[in-house]
Design a protein around this nucleic acid. Structure first.
Length: 305
DNA sequence: GCATGTCAAGTTGTG
DNA sequence: CACAACTTGACATGC
């Protein structure tokens, strides 16, 4: 009933994704830049396919794809189009294999743009860059068959309702291939489920419920209530609910419960998720990645809940 | 080789 | 006011 999701990378399994720095790339001439970026893009595409094979063999039903699959794609100076890469055809072919494999094995794919993507920002330039990044990730989502591109609302700027209004306004201007993939996740400082639920319903955006963030940043809702509200937003578009879980590295009593620990403490796993009589996705945000999934699965079976 | 400092980008809270 | 935290360490440089 529960499919567990792995986020971005592996801890022990030797499947690696490569990066590039703008500084390093800038030193090359344009042809050299595209050669290197192409090489990394093809490497990462093959790693993604290997990641899905691993997932299939280990009963992992979801995988989050790292934003840097195509490094520096939206960078103002060294950014590029997929077709600029010498190996664009090979890269696209591997993406096609990824899409086919994920569909055949029912592995749910998602993206999680990083903190620089803030549609609610009052700074126009930040919004423009954010939209550019979302267009990139949604374009890639189409090629590899990813369902979700999951966002945070971002900053408050001293006035939550105004920030949410700015978000809505920008959201409505986005092209369909972007709009149809975006989801909103409650965060650990600013926006909780109570804040996001109304705007998610209004705009038809599914709400990804992160129970760890909810515990760091409570809103008066119980875990059960927040789970129900989130589930409702997924039902509204006929899709499978998607949740996140992690455990605090320094324990719940510390002043900083936000940092993630190596594994998931089975006691942090909401009992109500086990009782939902339906298929759900739970991404594990834990440093030890595939090892954490194996351990949690084991703990859930052996530890009385 | 291996150590260590650095890396495009936003926003918030802590020490 | 610098730094860590956020979905993630890897790359570049210097010895």
């Amino acid at each position: 009933m529960i499919r567990f999701g792995l986020c971005c990378i592996f801890h022990e399994e030797p499947i690696k994704f490569r990066h590039a720095t703008a500084k390093g790339i800038s030193k090359l001439d344009r042809a050299g830049q595209l050669d290197k970026l192409s090489e990394i893009a093809l490497h990462n595409a093959n790693s993604l396919l290997n990641a899905l094979r691993f997932a299939d063999e280990h009963d992992i039903g979801a995988f989050r794809i790292m934003s840097q699959m195509l490094p520096l794609f939206t960078h103002p100076d060294v950014g590029y189009d997929l077709d600029d890469l010498p190996e664009a055809d090979e890269v696209k072919q591997v993406y096609g294999s990824v899409k086919q494999f994920a569909a055949a094995k029912d592995i749910r794919l998602s993206f999680h743009p990083d903190q620089f993507v803030v549609l609610a920002s009052p700074t126009e330039k930040v919004v423009i860059n954010s939209i550019k990044e979302l267009c990139y990730q949604c374009m890639l989502s189409e090629l590899v068959g990813a369902e979700n591109v999951n966002l945070h609302m971002g900053g408050v700027y001293g006035d939550k309702p105004s920030a949410i209004k700015r978000f809505s306004k920008v959201f409505n201007t986005l092209p369909d291939y972007v709009k149809s993939r975006l989801t909103l996740e409650n965060d650990d400082y600013s926006y909780n489920v109570a804040d996001l639920y109304p705007v998610c319903l209004e705009l038809g955006i599914p709400l990804v419920y992160d129970v760890h963030h909810h515990r760091c940043n409570p809103d008066g809702l119980s875990v059960e209530e927040a789970t129900r509200k989130s589930t409702e937003t997924w039902d509204a578009c006929g899709r499978e609910p998607h949740f996140h879980i992690s455990s605090p590295r320094n324990g719940w009593d510390s002043s900083k419960p936000q940092p993630h620990s190596d594994y998931i403490d089975v006691n942090d796993f909401p009992e109500c998720w086990l009782k939902l009589d339906r298929k759900i996705t739970v991404d594990l945000e834990a440093k030890f990645k595939e090892l954490a999934i194996e351990r949690l699965r084991n703990d859930l079976q052996t530890v009385k809940h």
